[in-house]
Design a protein around this nucleic acid. Structure first.
Lengths: 354, 354
DNA sequence: CTTTTTTGCACAATCGATGGTGCAAATAAT
DNA sequence: ATTATTTGCACCATCGATTGTGCAAAAAAG
């Protein structure tokens, strides 16, 4: 049964077996046979043969002919954090439900690698591309445009293709406000110079978040100084160093921390590993990203959950439009209070033991 | 510059432009031109033209001709947890360094979907397949075998293809021992009926872990009863329900908890969200998976980090062998003490702000 | 100045599926 | 019985790249 010839059956094999022409076999097997007025009995004959011989279409051949592949790509900066991995999870489900094949690849936030990766995907005649968190979305756009590939930006916007991103400004305001509010009934009120923002770089998301942070901070605490903004890039290590430097200088951490992403939060973890519990005794952390474990740390952690489901839903909607307007669609994120375990994309997977 | 014709240049275009035949163009552009004794000057001419016209090979056409695609697949149960997402991250880097294109797909731990997904990958003439955490690796093997595709099991073993998995038995022993040790200087010593295992199902990994757990428990605490094993499947929800049921019954949690995976740990988080801090006052948790945030929870969390780098390295080594022996290769996992922030695959990504 | 060898490349088949076109046989209309 | 339709399918070019083969021109050998 398993050794029945290393070679996969082709329409030509079935053509011989059935006595029909290859084009008839092809039509039967790709469902266009009614349109081609093929007799039902012929169709059945061929379908049975196909099943017997475990025929599956060679998708490269089909793709070559159609100059489409049935592949839908998602370009990610990295896999290894909850924001992007849950995005990948949702993406896959969505693409599958459209009868296509999802392909998820990461490009390490490296503009060169982004372009190279996308070029490769294009060479496979990928049908559509979702560009998430790209450092240089517009160059990626140019590639797609030249190849005639429908594409859309997610998470970080571009200026040449429609973009779906979370409302970073509003989210940052919500988060900052929630952090400050936590100190409402503190013995000593929070001073502006005790509330810092760590992480991020000079991208659209970081800029918006910083703006939201500063606006609310000024509004509620009356003042905000540049010194309180510490963009460390998206690197745990750099973030850790920033915390160490601060601690070295001040002998303690800021009472209020706005951390730009869960990746930066990992920098704080590394710092934590080097210091005793007490260092974090009355600290309040806000993190612009949701991680279920992060939500239960020993100090209050307020998080922002970006609504990847809605973002992707909107993105799929737009990408199906003929000529979607090049504009930025904002999706509202959600404030997550400390000690909250939200459901995620995994919850829609049935568990056979359930 | 960007609108220079929607169509991508082909070797035929370059053939016309250069005055050479398509086969010459092909040879030049795929590097076999020396072997074909093409003049250096012709090669240069064509290479320049290719660059000017932004030629990139149509990989579907190449794949069709070669019946290879340059794609290397990783089949995952799910994306959305740190174990698998860091595996994906490592996998991508490794595949890229081999000059191939990584494709990561998940199949939701659903045997049907696993087979369907693999069938699709095979239809794209994927070159190699890494099968991680498959529920039915042997059926997947049959598909690959029939298509002549090199493949290997990771995380969960099969009986028909070589497998690289972590040493779940030893890992579980280490973890259980570490949990018990934590109670060494407790006022009241830990009793066997206070140490429970939650999560997992009837797969190879769970069975080994349960065995390790029970062996050490019996060894160190003198006794272990079946009641202390609560396999809840790999579902946060089921796990939460199990904890709720236990709590309902006993009015408290077990003092010692062995949690079978980070996914099950999320079930504990959901339980935690419903109960005050005090419920977890003197609890010790061991989790068979590492999650950086999980390591810093308010109670001691001992974790096992499975060595995905070594697993993948070994897997790549094996998959390149001509006829690798069908055996199980065990990779030692690492015990991670509470409040530890390990480096991960992201650390090897250069940060442009660094 | 022949004959042999080497150089440089063109030709054409092939991978598997698709879809426009055309044509004979079956059926219907007159 | 003849013409007009419809049915059912085969033929063939095509998508873009690869590769075995063959052959003329150039270079080397004699």
């Amino acid at each position: 049964m398993k050794h029945q010839g290393k070679k996969k059956a082709t329409i030509y094999d079935l053509s011989v077996l059935s006595g029909c022409s290859a084009s008839t076999v092809s039509a039967v097997l790709n469902g266009t046979w009614r349109k081609r007025r093929i007799k039902e009995s012929t169709a059945e004959l061929i379908q049975n043969l196909a099943e017997q011989h475990q025929y599956t279409a060679n998708l490269q051949a089909r793709g070559l002919r159609n100059s489409r592949s049935g592949l839908v790509g998602l370009l990610l900066p990295v896999h290894d954090n909850r924001y992007f991995s849950s995005m990948a999870q949702t993406f896959e489900a969505e693409v599958r439900s459209h009868g296509k094949c999802p392909v998820v690849v990461s490009a390490s936030r490296d503009p060169q690698e982004e372009l190279a990766t996308v070029a490769t995907l294009i060479s496979y005649s990928i049908d559509e591309l979702f560009i998430a968190g790209a450092t240089d979305p517009d160059s990626v756009h140019d590639l797609c445009e030249a190849a005639g590939i429908r594409h859309i930006n997610i998470d970080l916007p571009g200026t040449k293709a429609p973009s779906v991103i979370s409302d970073n400004y509003q989210g940052a305001r919500m988060l900052t406000q929630a952090i400050i509010k936590r100190f409402d009934d503190a013995a000593v009120p929070l001073k502006p110079e005790e509330l810092f923002l760590f992480g991020g770089r000079n991208d659209h998301a970081s800029r918006e978040r910083i703006k939201g942070f500063r606006d609310i901070k000024t509004e509620l605490l009356g003042h905000d100084s540049d010194a309180c903004i510490q963009p460390t890039g998206y690197s745990p290590n750099m973030t850790q160093k920033a915390f160490e430097a601060f601690y070295e200088r001040e002998g303690k951490l800021p009472r209020g921390l706005f951390i730009n992403s869960s990746i930066n939060f990992e920098g704080l973890l590394r710092f934590m590993a080097q210091h005793p519990h007490e260092t974090f005794a009355d600290i309040v952390v806000g993190c612009y990203d949701y991680d279920p474990f992060g939500s239960f740390l020993p100090f209050p952690v307020i998080m922002i959950r970006q609504d990847t489901e809605s973002m992707l839903a909107k993105a799929f909607e737009l990408i199906e439009e003929a000529r979607p307007a090049v504009k930025i669609h904002l999706i509202q994120p959600e404030l997550v209070h400390p000690r909250t375990a939200l459901k995620g994309p995994l919850d829609s997977i049935r568990d056979i033991d359930a």
